[in-house]
């Protein structure tokens, strides 16, 4: 083609080109709306993320009745804080204690509780974690710098498309009297997957 003033897009990778072609075709056919796509991206890039889960954990640390509800019926208790939606319809919350540590994986793909943790990190979706979490959980946790005492029982939970898990990490020592908001700052994404612990207060 000659004589046009558009810039050639030959620098696109085959994957980038394929995505552009699909979006262009689907938009033309009225099947997707680019503005609606922008909103979806904005939602999952900036609004839904592990701060949601951190609020759930901090509430459970400060409100024994809430914690009881959360462990009995995770989906309902999480919905009390307004966190609902796709890929979090059926939630089970796993409580870490001094004697039991829970670790969550999805060996088959990437099932993850979106409403409370957002979209999963690359390592959660990649072969090394998915393959090894179920046969060598202590070795896996060590790669995240987490080494537990030998007498702590490690339980590994394999997620499915229907059922997703959130780990309720142990409340760190020395946090008596801290506000729920301050406590939420100690709750990391990894502590809710089981590849980490909640942070110590500064």
């Amino acid at each position: 083609m000659t004589g046009h003033d558009h810039q050639h897009d030959s620098s696109l990778s085959p994957t980038e080109l394929r995505v552009k072609a699909l979006e262009s075709l689907l938009t033309e056919k009225g099947l997707v709306d680019p503005a609606a796509l922008d909103i979806l991206i904005e939602t999952y890039e900036n609004k839904v993320g592990p701060r949601n889960g951190a609020r759930v954990v901090a509430r459970a640390w400060t409100d024994p009745d809430y914690k009881k509800r959360l462990l009995e019926d995770g989906s309902s208790a999480i919905a009390e804080l307004g966190y609902t939606g796709r890929q979090g319809e059926d939630m089970v919350v796993l409580e870490n204690t001094p004697s039991v540590h829970n670790l969550v994986v999805c060996t088959l793909c990437s099932c993850y509780p979106w409403p409370v943790l957002g979209l999963p990190p690359v390592w959660y979706k990649a072969a090394p974690y998915r393959s090894r979490a179920v046969i060598d959980p202590r070795g896996v946790m060590a790669e995240f710098g987490l080494v537990l005492d030998d007498d702590v029982e490690v339980r590994v939970w394999d997620s499915t498309a229907e059922l997703r898990y959130l780990v309720l990490p142990e409340r760190p020592a020395g946090t008596d009297g801290m506000s729920e908001e301050a406590l939420a700052e100690l709750v990391t994404r990894d502590s809710m997957i089981g590849t980490g612990l909640a942070l110590q207060p500064k």
Partner: peptide
Amino acid sequence: AHDMGGMHGLGPIDPE
């Protein structure tokens, strides 16, 4: 290939 639970040799996890 997606059914990876228990496979060996797929490398380090390397979190970013």
